[in-house]
């Protein structure tokens, strides 16, 4: 327990100290992207890792919040109004999305979320009077809470870090709460949970709302970071990237989505510096992770590390090593 706490404190210290160590804007911006996408990945992980529900439409929820911010600002309101409206609007959209998607579970759930996500994308693309279509909407200013400007990469990083830490704390509290335990129960044995007196649908619905809330928070940060929103941010590759972040690091773990976000953002930035074939890379990583490391990078590396350690000491793998090769916390891939 104390070593875990020490690791968390060390992690926070590193994140806070980061801009002092690497002062170039380019790297600070990448760090901001990692943190804002990590919030998105956490949101997806609530469903994928803890509810066992794989969503391929979350970029739609992310995008709705971003579009609300852009539209409210364009209508002449301030940042507070825009952010509150985006959070409320994001929750309402999530509720509708969840009510439809939760008619089903398993593979059909994936299909429905994909279709819903594409419909939201289609709206962003064609509802030109609201979204300005393919040209997108620009946001010209960033908020300045308590007089602290977020205009600089440094200021934006600090704000994103605070939001990220709050999101992590919320997630940590949620997953160890009674409701979080009930959610994990519905993932493993929905029928038994029902017989024990739990309202399985409502538990999933509430988890969906939490997931949509985190996605909205991330979408708000995204539109301020880029100072721009266009349908591309809502398209299927964006949902796929979010899902990849959630499972690449290890679904159903607290730090997996953060690792996954770092992986995807770094690869995307490194790759796009050399070639423009980002979607190809995204697809290839997806296939590779699913085929070779279905439990995700964090548990997968732990497993490989253990196996190597054992091999070095000349011992055979124990059954529990093999057992842990199945996805921990996440759905069976």
């Amino acid at each position: 327990m104390s070593s875990r706490r020490a690791a968390i404190v060390a992690g926070i210290v590193v994140l806070v100290a980061l801009p002092f160590v690497i002062s170039e804007d380019y790297y600070i911006n990448i760090a901001s992207q990692i943190l804002l996408y990590a919030i998105f990945a956490l949101g997806i992980d609530v469903l994928v890792g803890y509810a066992g529900l794989v969503s391929l439409g979350h970029a739609g929820l992310f995008g709705i919040a971003a579009y609300i911010v852009a539209n409210v600002l364009a209508a002449g309101y301030g940042h507070t109004v825009a952010i509150v409206a985006a959070l409320i609007g994001g929750l309402i959209a999530t509720a509708g999305f969840a009510a439809v998607a939760l008619r089903s579970v398993g593979i059909t759930f994936i299909m429905i979320t994909l279709a819903l996500g594409e419909i939201i994308w289609g709206l962003a693309y064609r509802w030109i009077s609201v979204t300005n279509g393919d040209n997108g909407i620009s946001v010209t200013t960033r908020p300045a809470p308590f007089g602290l400007s977020l205009a600089s990469p440094r200021g934006f990083y600090d704000a994103t870090l605070i939001v990220f830490l709050l999101a992590m704390a919320a997630m940590a509290i949620f997953v160890s709460s009674p409701l979080g335990a009930a959610l994990a129960g519905t993932r493993d044995q929905p029928r038994r949970m029902n017989a024990l007196g739990y309202h399985v649908w409502m538990i999933r619905f509430l988890a969906f709302l939490f997931s949509g809330f985190l996605s909205s928070v991330s979408g708000i940060l995204f539109v301020y970071y880029n100072e721009f929103i266009s349908p591309q941010a809502l398209a299927l590759p964006a949902s796929a990237a979010g899902l990849l972040m959630a499972i690449a690091g290890g679904a159903g773990t607290l730090f997996g989505p953060v690792v996954g976000s770092a992986l995807v953002v770094i690869v995307q930035n490194v790759v796009s510096a050399y070639i423009t074939r980002w979607n190809f890379m995204l697809g290839a990583i997806f296939v590779a992770i699913v085929v070779f490391m279905p439990e995700g990078l964090v548990p997968g590396s732990v497993r490989f590390g253990r196996a190597i350690w054992r091999a070095a000491r000349g011992r055979k793998p124990t059954p529990s090593d093999r057992a842990s090769a199945t996805p921990i916390g996440g759905p069976r891939l």
Partner: peptide, 21 residues
């Protein structure tokens, strides 16, 4: 604990720690 929680209103609580109950 899941069996007991199923009949308790505590099951809707997302804020407290289950291990502290």
């Amino acid at each position: 604990m899941l069996a007991l929680l199923g009949l308790s209103t505590l099951r809707w609580n997302p804020f407290t720690r289950l291990s502290r109950q």
